[in-house]
Design a protein around this nucleic acid. Structure first.
Lengths: 419, 419
DNA sequence: GTCATTTAATTCAACCGTTGAACAAATTGG
DNA sequence: CCAATTTGTTCAACGGTTGAATTAAATGAC
């Protein structure tokens, strides 16, 4: 399947999978680094040799390269029991490369910096209504925010090695935003508009800018925040539309053209309300934010997305009957659609993110009820429905984390840099 | 994502992705063989070197190993225009390993042999009503049929190097058939019941028997019958239940427990007809074979699956109004569900297979209508809805083809065999 | 018919990076 | 104090790729 980091930007000059002499060391650098990243406590060279099947001599040489390249650092040896030379633990370096996550949404801009260890080192948010703003202006403001984040990273001794931009819409080939209805954007060539503002240092094999749908990057954020290993889950976020990030076996599934995740147009009532897609009875007409607001008696309030969600959460928390009923109905419709997806894709986890995260306490019970009822295997193997682990702007964090992940998965580009 | 060949059986003693000295040649054998398999005309060593990035010396050595191992053969050099040494084309050997595809269904057993080139060399079908038969007896009969196919393969100079068994149900860990309602099977340990009947020659890295859901193997059959390269599509087959094989980027997607593809329980009318899954309004109640038969006035006819499909096709071909209306309604319901899946997974092809293949002329128009109406991107990027390319017993052919694919993807196991 | 030219395939010494074994370092525990 | 144990480093050897040289097999000009 096409993973997010293959969708666009710099394509590696692949030799079609052939393993050349130089590939040996390249691949083993990645294998060892990945092991260090995934370990739940700092592994030693001997442990890495046992885990990978390489000899201690080879692991020692590979680790030397990783330390020299500031991707790995040695921890103090832990006291041991029994005879034997104490082992030096190895950890990801906290002062090497970092990823830059950016987000443009209807009412805010965000920039965050995530280091190799996954730690969010800086997170800058600017409130602004971006709907009346042209794409060029919006991106200019974003670049300014990115420059602030970059300066803060440099002060920390970090080097920004890749940027990801989350947008609320469909992203096509080459990072072009085909359609972002909430921003009023259509066919915006984002990389071209940012071309004269370098955001990060150039690193071979890492695209300088990755543009991706926000639901997809939020899902990546949840993936990277979770335990290591191949996870599969559906990350659902509800704004006007309802988007899903689909993570299968530890990788984001984007689809043939990068337009996967349109859960909002799964019909939950084939003869129901007409939808803007041309169909009728689509999920977003029942569980989209506009639908919930209308059912709660808040139609026409013209609230930005996360303000609307907060408002609904406040009302629900206060026990407003109309809001509670609206959320229950929305949860039921969402549950019907989600159950179909779980049956289809054999998933065991559903994450309520984005605009749904603050509403999760009220959405979750009816979703769980429909899922338990409709998923064939639910009796044997329950499906977990949980709110997102990441908080606000999880798309920006997810984006930064996925850029950092590319360094871990393919360290030679970084190691080849001068200095 | 977990590809079909990773689901069960022998697990390779992987060194967690580390590339050892011996891995170089192993991987390059696979790369070169894959290139030869994918080429649309026999490539030369020089062309393989250009395509893979390896030197001509290396390709020559690798090809020597593949020829010696009977995986590759040289074609006569084509006449060339202009000066220069004529190139020797290379092809997959038609007298080396082959895959054995088996199928148990309600009213027949099948065994087929597919060679490295993808050619079906033998295809044996036995009609029998297997519902009153115990699993042990059914598998004994299948083993006898497999032995016939094996004898025929041996006469051709082929060596059966792996078997795949298609069953109409859910398959769990280790090839255990958890549930096959149409056969009346529950928790049948198929590999154990066949353990004392070796079906194929042992080859390192290839499980002797792979048990898989029939929809999944049929989808693999369509995948391998299509052009090389990462295809994505939904293969839908309708018997009593409705199953889907989901192929994403050239690999079958099985899901966390191997139970993906349950499209039959996507609700198309959430307040509609009660379903045996506990939900209501599920697709199979509208487009499953029983539903179509009932709507056509054939309820209770107690026909086997493919006979029922043939009967419906006959009636529709004769213009029977009730049958035509039933198929139109079923097509509409199927279209609603399929449109949701296409939106969710961003697919561009839907294949009507299994019991739907003979009914495709009548099911396709309403499916196309709903898909065109409900898929967001249909105006820009039309979705292809087509009948399955493979004919009868596509699951057996798909199974055999996927075993052969494993040899191509990992030839060292075969090459290490004595002789 | 001969030979220059061109392209494919093979051979070869050199190199890269892994390898198994030997050795050095750093402890614990008797 | 020293044997035993475990980790980390060093080393000559090896497997397999490599770039260049050589051989093979044609075409086409003369």
């Amino acid at each position: 399947m096409t993973a997010v980091w293959q969708c666009q930007g710099v394509t590696s000059t692949s030799t079609a999978g052939a393993v050349r002499q130089g590939s040996l060391r390249e691949l083993n650098l990645a294998v060892v680094l990945r092991r260090i990243a995934a370990a739940d406590r700092p592994p030693s060279r001997a442990e890495l040799a046992a885990a990978t099947g390489l000899t201690r001599a080879t692991v020692s040489a590979v680790v030397d390269d990783l330390i020299a390249g500031r991707l790995v650092a040695e921890a103090d040896p832990a006291p041991r029991s029994g005879a034997g030379r104490p082992a030096r633990g190895l950890v990801l370096a906290a002062d090497g490369p970092a990823g830059l996550g950016l987000e443009i949404n209807v009412d805010y801009l965000a920039a965050c910096v995530v280091d190799l260890t996954g730690t969010v080192r800086h997170h800058l948010v600017r409130r602004a209504d971006l709907r009346p703003v042209s794409p060029a202006d919006a991106l200019a403001r974003l670049a300014a925010l990115a420059a602030e984040a970059r300066a803060a990273a440099v002060r920390d001794g970090l080097t920004l090695a890749g940027a990801a931009l989350a947008v609320p819409g469909l992203v096509g080939e080459g990072g072009r935003v085909r359609l972002a209805p909430n921003l009023g954007w259509r066919d915006v060539d984002v990389p071209a508009l940012l071309a004269d503002r370098p955001l990060v240092e150039p690193v071979a094999g890492i695209p300088p800018l990755l543009v991706e749908n926000e639901a997809n990057l939020a899902a990546l954020g949840e993936l990277h925040a979770g335990p290591p290993g191949p996870a599969s889950f559906l990350h659902v976020s509800g704004e006007i539309g309802i988007g899903a990030g689909i993570v299968l076996d530890g990788a984001l599934y984007r689809g043939a053209r990068g337009w996967s995740g349109e859960i909002g147009h799964i019909p939950v009532d084939p003869r129901g309300r007409p939808c803007r897609c041309g169909g009728q009875g689509c999920l977003e007409r029942y569980a989209g934010q506009e639908a919930i607001l209308a059912a709660a008696g808040l139609a026409g309030a013209d609230l930005p997305a996360d303000t609307a969600a907060a408002r609904l959460a406040d009302l629900a928390g206060a026990g407003d009957p109309a809001t509670l009923a609206a959320l229950a109905d929305a949860g039921t419709a969402l549950g019907v659609a989600v159950a179909g997806v779980v049956n289809l894709l054999d998933l065991d986890t559903v994450v309520l993110g984005g605009g749904y995260a603050p509403l999760a306490p009220w959405l979750r019970p009816p979703v769980v009820a429909e899922v338990s009822r409709r998923v064939l295997t639910a009796a044997w193997s329950p499906v977990t429905v949980r709110p997102a682990a990441l908080g606000a702007q999880s798309a920006a964090v997810g984006g930064a984390a996925s850029m950092v992940r590319r360094i871990v998965d393919q360290p030679v580009g970084w190691l080849a840099r001068p200095g």
